[in-house]
């Protein structure tokens, strides 16, 4: 078989990529339109819909909440996920196999079921504040990504290096920070980015965990779309896309982009 795929397959792949890219191009175009309704190609270029995002207080508020939750949730997930991933790799024989499966559960069970269950059993059950519930929900949905990416990083780490440091008199905790952590730096960065973006984009869990004054950006976008059909949402979408591009550029700089495909 020659290395070159059949022309038919190349055409199909080309069309699939066109299908993937065109809608996003259309969103960008619609965001730049000067009209008060959504249209493409844009009629008269303007950035006024971008200004409009920040004039609507609900958008301003939810952007802040979303960034807070994504940052805090990701940090907590790293804080509890890195030791867990380390334990899974370092004590593979001593720890039961189901423990690894447990950490995947948050992406295995339907997210919307998790969101509902958290609302019903935790928020309503204990009267916990909405912000706290939202933070817990987001921490848990990004935990599987953190554990998986860090585990993949640790899989190629030679634990005998750590063993050597400890037998030469380095304290175990200090050894972790001076020997292990620097070696999995790339994995930690990747885990942070993946978790942050996942949290920022989440709909299904946040859907139930919003209350008076507290909501996340994707939920606000959903609510806005159902009421108004103006280019504001297109502008927010473009803003989010820019954020994604920026993040991908950071990944490219530090790790190389094929890292994300693993």
């Amino acid at each position: 078989m020659s290395d070159r795929p059949h022309p038919f397959l190349i055409v199909v792949a080309g069309l699939v990529y066109l299908f993937l890219m065109l809608p996003l191009v259309i969103v960008v175009g619609a965001a730049l339109s000067d009209t008060t309704y959504l249209t493409f190609p844009p009629q008269g270029l303007s950035l006024r819909w971008f200004e409009n995002i920040f004039e609507i207080s609900a958008f301003r508020r939810t952007i802040v909440t979303s960034l807070q939750i994504a940052f805090l949730g990701t940090m907590i997930a790293l804080l509890i996920g890195i030791p867990a991933a380390y334990a899974l790799n370092r004590f593979r024989i001593e720890l039961p196999k189901w423990l690894g499966t447990l950490f995947v559960l948050p992406i295995l069970v339907p997210e919307i079921v998790f969101g509902f269950a958290l609302l019903k059993s935790f928020t309503v059950g204990t009267g916990a504040p909405i912000f706290l519930s939202l933070l817990i929900g987001h921490t848990l949905i990004v935990l599987p990504y953190v554990v998986r990416v860090i585990s993949a990083s640790l899989a190629s780490f030679d634990f005998s290096v750590e063993e050597a440091a400890i037998s030469l008199g380095s304290a175990p905790v200090k050894t972790f920070f001076t020997i292990v952590l620097p070696n999995i730096r790339a994995g930690v960065i990747a885990a942070f980015i993946l978790a942050f973006i996942t949290s920022l984009n989440d709909v299904s869990v946040s859907l139930f965990l919003t209350g008076p004054g507290i909501s996340t950006l994707p939920i606000q976008i959903l609510a806005h779309v159902e009421q108004f059909f103006d280019p504001t949402v297109a502008s927010v979408s473009v803003l989010l896309m820019f954020l994604t591009v920026a993040v991908m550029a950071v990944v490219e700089r530090t790790l190389g982009l094929t890292f994300l495909a693993k």
Binding site: L20, L24, V27, N201, V225, V233, S237, V247, L260
Partner: peptide, 22 residues
């Protein structure tokens, strides 16, 4: 691969919204 990753990192609301316009 990057071109396939990009839409994945773009949120579901944005991607559904694109088809609303179309």
């Amino acid at each position: 691969i990057v071109a396939a990753v990009f839409p994945l990192l773009t949120g579901v609301v944005v991607r559904a919204f694109a088809w609303l316009i179309i």
